[in-house]
Amino acid sequence: MKRLALVILVIAPIVISESCKREERAYRIQPPDAEVADAVPVTSFQVGPSTQAATMPSNPYENNAYALTEGQRLFNAMNCVGCHFHGGGGIGPPLMDSTWIYGGEPAQIFDTIIRGRPNGMPSFRNHLQDSQAWMIVAYVRSLSGNANPNAAPGRDDNMNGPIPPASIKKQPATQSSQPPSTVMPS
Protein backbone atom coordinates (compact mmCIF):
# COMPACT_ATOMS: atom_id res chain seq x y z
CA MET A 1 0.00 0.00 0.00
CA LYS A 2 2.75 2.37 1.01
CA ARG A 3 4.69 1.49 -2.13
CA LEU A 4 1.68 2.00 -4.35
CA ALA A 5 1.11 5.44 -2.90
CA LEU A 6 4.71 6.30 -3.58
CA VAL A 7 4.41 5.17 -7.19
CA ILE A 8 1.30 7.26 -7.68
CA LEU A 9 3.00 10.20 -6.10
CA VAL A 10 5.89 9.92 -8.50
CA ILE A 11 3.90 9.11 -11.63
CA ALA A 12 0.91 11.42 -11.22
CA PRO A 13 2.70 14.70 -11.91
CA ILE A 14 4.20 13.25 -15.05
CA VAL A 15 0.83 11.97 -16.26
CA ILE A 16 -0.90 15.21 -15.40
CA SER A 17 1.71 17.40 -17.01
CA GLU A 18 1.62 15.27 -20.16
CA SER A 19 -2.16 15.21 -20.51
CA CYS A 20 -2.52 18.85 -19.62
CA LYS A 21 0.04 20.50 -21.80
CA ARG A 22 -2.69 22.91 -22.72
CA GLU A 23 -2.65 24.06 -19.08
CA GLU A 24 1.09 24.62 -18.98
CA ARG A 25 2.00 27.87 -17.27
CA ALA A 26 3.27 30.46 -19.58
CA TYR A 27 6.70 31.12 -18.13
CA ARG A 28 7.96 27.79 -19.44
CA ILE A 29 7.05 28.69 -23.01
CA GLN A 30 9.35 30.83 -25.05
CA PRO A 31 7.48 33.23 -27.33
CA PRO A 32 9.25 34.50 -30.43
CA ASP A 33 11.69 37.36 -29.96
CA ALA A 34 10.32 40.83 -30.41
CA GLU A 35 12.90 41.28 -33.20
CA VAL A 36 11.22 38.71 -35.42
CA ALA A 37 8.42 41.18 -35.78
CA ASP A 38 10.80 43.67 -37.30
CA ALA A 39 11.41 41.31 -40.17
CA VAL A 40 7.73 40.82 -40.81
CA PRO A 41 6.74 41.73 -44.34
CA VAL A 42 3.77 44.03 -44.77
CA THR A 43 3.06 42.78 -48.26
CA SER A 44 3.94 39.78 -50.38
CA PHE A 45 4.26 42.04 -53.40
CA GLN A 46 7.96 42.58 -53.94
CA VAL A 47 9.92 44.13 -56.77
CA GLY A 48 12.47 41.69 -58.15
CA PRO A 49 13.01 38.10 -56.99
CA SER A 50 11.38 37.35 -53.65
CA THR A 51 13.74 37.33 -50.70
CA GLN A 52 11.09 36.83 -48.09
CA ALA A 53 11.33 33.95 -45.68
CA ALA A 54 8.92 31.22 -46.69
CA THR A 55 7.52 30.78 -43.21
CA MET A 56 6.84 33.24 -40.48
CA PRO A 57 7.48 32.32 -36.86
CA SER A 58 4.66 30.62 -35.05
CA ASN A 59 3.47 31.59 -31.62
CA PRO A 60 3.64 28.67 -29.15
CA TYR A 61 1.03 30.36 -26.95
CA GLU A 62 -1.57 29.37 -29.52
CA ASN A 63 -1.45 25.85 -28.12
CA ASN A 64 -1.61 26.87 -24.50
CA ALA A 65 -4.89 27.36 -22.71
CA TYR A 66 -3.41 29.40 -19.90
CA ALA A 67 -1.78 31.84 -22.31
CA LEU A 68 -4.94 32.12 -24.37
CA THR A 69 -7.08 32.80 -21.32
CA GLU A 70 -4.56 35.32 -20.08
CA GLY A 71 -4.61 36.88 -23.56
CA GLN A 72 -8.37 37.14 -23.35
CA ARG A 73 -8.14 38.76 -19.91
CA LEU A 74 -5.60 41.28 -21.19
CA PHE A 75 -7.70 41.99 -24.27
CA ASN A 76 -10.39 43.23 -21.88
CA ALA A 77 -8.07 44.85 -19.32
CA MET A 78 -6.15 46.82 -21.97
CA ASN A 79 -9.47 48.09 -23.40
CA CYS A 80 -8.89 46.41 -26.77
CA VAL A 81 -12.49 45.34 -26.22
CA GLY A 82 -13.65 48.96 -26.21
CA CYS A 83 -12.52 49.43 -29.82
CA HIS A 84 -12.80 45.91 -31.26
CA PHE A 85 -15.54 44.53 -28.99
CA HIS A 86 -15.57 40.74 -28.92
CA GLY A 87 -14.04 40.44 -32.36
CA GLY A 88 -16.81 42.01 -34.43
CA GLY A 89 -15.25 45.47 -34.39
CA GLY A 90 -16.61 48.96 -33.89
CA ILE A 91 -14.05 51.72 -33.78
CA GLY A 92 -11.39 49.29 -34.94
CA PRO A 93 -11.92 46.62 -37.60
CA PRO A 94 -13.28 43.14 -36.87
CA LEU A 95 -10.69 40.63 -35.65
CA MET A 96 -12.83 37.52 -36.09
CA ASP A 97 -13.00 37.55 -39.88
CA SER A 98 -10.55 36.48 -42.55
CA THR A 99 -9.73 40.02 -43.69
CA TRP A 100 -6.56 41.58 -42.38
CA ILE A 101 -5.29 45.01 -43.30
CA TYR A 102 -1.85 44.48 -41.83
CA GLY A 103 -1.69 40.70 -41.97
CA GLY A 104 -2.98 37.94 -39.72
CA GLU A 105 0.29 36.13 -38.99
CA PRO A 106 1.24 36.16 -35.30
CA ALA A 107 4.26 38.37 -35.89
CA GLN A 108 2.19 40.82 -37.90
CA ILE A 109 -0.43 41.09 -35.17
CA PHE A 110 2.34 41.49 -32.60
CA ASP A 111 3.66 44.33 -34.70
CA THR A 112 0.22 45.93 -34.89
CA ILE A 113 -0.17 45.86 -31.11
CA ILE A 114 3.31 47.07 -30.21
CA ARG A 115 3.82 49.69 -32.91
CA GLY A 116 0.24 50.78 -33.52
CA ARG A 117 -1.21 51.47 -36.98
CA PRO A 118 -1.81 54.82 -38.66
CA ASN A 119 -5.61 54.93 -38.83
CA GLY A 120 -6.26 54.92 -35.12
CA MET A 121 -4.71 51.77 -33.65
CA PRO A 122 -2.71 53.02 -30.65
CA SER A 123 0.74 51.67 -29.85
CA PHE A 124 0.83 49.60 -26.66
CA ARG A 125 4.63 49.62 -26.52
CA ASN A 126 4.77 51.10 -23.05
CA HIS A 127 1.80 49.23 -21.72
CA LEU A 128 2.58 45.58 -22.37
CA GLN A 129 5.52 43.26 -21.86
CA ASP A 130 6.43 41.28 -24.94
CA SER A 131 5.18 38.02 -23.43
CA GLN A 132 1.83 39.63 -22.64
CA ALA A 133 1.57 40.94 -26.18
CA TRP A 134 2.22 37.44 -27.57
CA MET A 135 -0.57 36.08 -25.35
CA ILE A 136 -2.94 38.69 -26.73
CA VAL A 137 -1.78 37.76 -30.24
CA ALA A 138 -2.71 34.15 -29.53
CA TYR A 139 -6.15 35.21 -28.28
CA VAL A 140 -6.72 37.53 -31.25
CA ARG A 141 -5.92 34.67 -33.61
CA SER A 142 -8.30 32.40 -31.71
CA LEU A 143 -11.13 34.79 -32.58
CA SER A 144 -10.85 33.70 -36.20
CA GLY A 145 -10.25 30.06 -35.34
CA ASN A 146 -6.50 30.26 -35.92
CA ALA A 147 -5.39 29.07 -32.49
CA ASN A 148 -5.50 25.46 -31.34
CA PRO A 149 -9.22 24.82 -30.75
CA ASN A 150 -8.40 22.47 -27.89
CA ALA A 151 -6.70 25.31 -26.07
CA ALA A 152 -8.86 28.26 -27.06
CA PRO A 153 -11.27 29.74 -24.53
CA GLY A 154 -14.39 27.56 -24.43
CA ARG A 155 -16.67 30.36 -23.42
CA ASP A 156 -16.70 34.01 -24.02
CA ASP A 157 -16.66 36.24 -21.00
CA ASN A 158 -19.54 38.38 -22.00
CA MET A 159 -23.27 37.91 -21.62
CA ASN A 160 -24.16 36.68 -25.02
CA GLY A 161 -21.36 37.49 -27.35
CA PRO A 162 -20.28 35.74 -30.49
CA ILE A 163 -19.67 31.99 -30.51
CA PRO A 164 -16.67 31.26 -28.31
CA PRO A 165 -13.24 31.01 -29.93
CA ALA A 166 -12.94 27.27 -29.25
CA SER A 167 -15.81 26.51 -31.59
CA ILE A 168 -15.24 29.12 -34.28
CA LYS A 169 -14.44 27.85 -37.75
CA LYS A 170 -10.91 28.50 -38.92
CA GLN A 171 -10.72 31.45 -41.29
CA PRO A 172 -7.51 31.54 -43.29
CA ALA A 173 -6.15 35.06 -43.45
CA THR A 174 -6.53 37.11 -46.60
CA GLN A 175 -5.16 40.53 -47.25
CA SER A 176 -7.76 43.26 -47.37
CA SER A 177 -8.68 44.57 -50.75
CA GLN A 178 -10.33 47.54 -49.07
CA PRO A 179 -8.47 50.52 -47.81
CA PRO A 180 -8.70 50.51 -44.02
CA SER A 181 -10.67 53.70 -43.92
CA THR A 182 -11.47 56.70 -45.96
CA VAL A 183 -8.69 58.00 -48.08
CA MET A 184 -8.34 61.64 -48.89
CA PRO A 185 -9.65 62.26 -52.37
CA SER A 186 -7.50 64.61 -54.36
Partner: peptide, 16 residues
Protein backbone atom coordinates in the same frame (compact mmCIF):
# COMPACT_ATOMS: atom_id res chain seq x y z
CA UNK B 1 -19.51 51.95 -42.82
CA UNK B 2 -16.89 50.05 -40.78
CA UNK B 3 -17.34 46.60 -42.39
CA UNK B 4 -18.16 45.12 -39.00
CA UNK B 5 -18.75 41.42 -38.43
CA UNK B 6 -22.40 40.68 -37.69
CA UNK B 7 -21.52 37.52 -35.74
CA UNK B 8 -20.53 39.64 -32.73
CA UNK B 9 -23.74 41.10 -31.26
CA UNK B 10 -21.74 43.38 -28.95
CA UNK B 11 -20.00 45.13 -31.89
CA UNK B 12 -20.24 48.93 -32.11
CA UNK B 13 -21.39 49.15 -28.48
CA UNK B 14 -24.10 46.58 -29.13
CA UNK B 15 -25.73 48.29 -32.11
CA UNK B 16 -24.53 45.57 -34.50
Amino acid sequence: AGDLDIRDPTGALGFV
